[in-house]
């Protein structure tokens, strides 16, 4: 299984697009919002948690359709399905590879962009924590969406339509955690709920994704 992870990471690095795409989008968004909303620090500080979280979410969404599409086209998905490793493991590894190539860089880049958006000082810790806890859920849910649309012609648009509603709980609790952290309110409930959703998603969704891949391979 580790071999699959290493292979996917190597492919992402070699393809070059893997790391840069999500990050570039996130940066562009963090630059566009102030240009659109105006430079007033108070306004930016108020919307910073939400913008950063929506940005991270959309950055994840961008690179989802590449999770299975490449393996579907060159036939290695069929070969992986007949390989000794269970499909559930393959799907989990794919989600992990997506998280490492897209989720993790977002977590590291978020504080820098937080500065751009005039995020209040004591929210930076909460921002990184919420993204660290939340982005795995985004990757696993995204993998489920990618599995659903793997064989379809114009699956990209459908993928975002299917996945965005599933992202809502993570987005709400994640952004809420950051804004409460910024305002100094109690953040425990938001953190626990965010972690709970991620844990549930990581535990259960791979089975749904594997089942969907099997259906699509039929």
């Amino acid at each position: 299984m580790i071999a699959l992870l290493i292979r996917d990471l190597r492919l992402a690095i070699r393809a070059g697009g893997g790391f840069g795409l999500g990050l570039a989008f996130f940066l562009i968004l963090a630059v566009l919002v102030p240009l659109g909303v105006g430079p007033q620090p108070a306004v930016l500080a108020a919307i910073a948690p939400g913008v950063l979280w929506v940005g991270a979410l959309l950055a994840c969404l961008l690179s989802l359709d590449r999770i299975f599409a490449l393996d579907w086209e060159d036939g290695s998905l069929d070969l992986l399905a007949t390989a000794p490793i269970p499909l559930e493991a393959v799907v989990t590894i794919k989600a992990l590879a997506h998280w490492i190539t897209t989720g993790l860089p977002l977590v590291l880049a978020a504080p820098v962009l937080g500065v751009l958006l005039n995020l209040s000082a004591d929210a930076f810790g909460w921002l990184v924590l919420s993204l660290l806890v939340g982005t795995p859920a985004l990757s696993v849910i995204g993998t489920f969406g990618a599995a659903l649309t793997v064989g379809l012609k114009r699956g990209g648009l459908l993928l975002s339509l299917l996945v965005l509603p599933l992202y809502i709980p993570t987005l709400v609790f994640g952004a809420e955690l950051v804004s409460r952290g910024a305002a100094g309110l109690t953040t425990q409930t938001a953190l626990l709920l965010l972690a709970g959703i991620t844990a549930g998603a990581v535990a259960i969704l791979p089975f749904a994704s594997a089942a969907v891949i099997r259906i699509n391979l039929r």
């Binding site: 489920f144 659903l148 299917l162 509603p165 599933l166 809502i168 709980p169 709400v172 609790f173 809420e176 409930t189 938001a190 709920l193 959703i197 969704l205 749904a208």
Partner: peptide
């Protein structure tokens, strides 16, 4: 999708109230 969506619809409803 309906099965998974139901779980997330309930979560979203709770999240909306929260």
């Amino acid at each position: 999708l309906c099965l998974v969506g139901t779980v997330f619809a309930l979560l979203s409803r709770y999240a909306a109230f929260f």
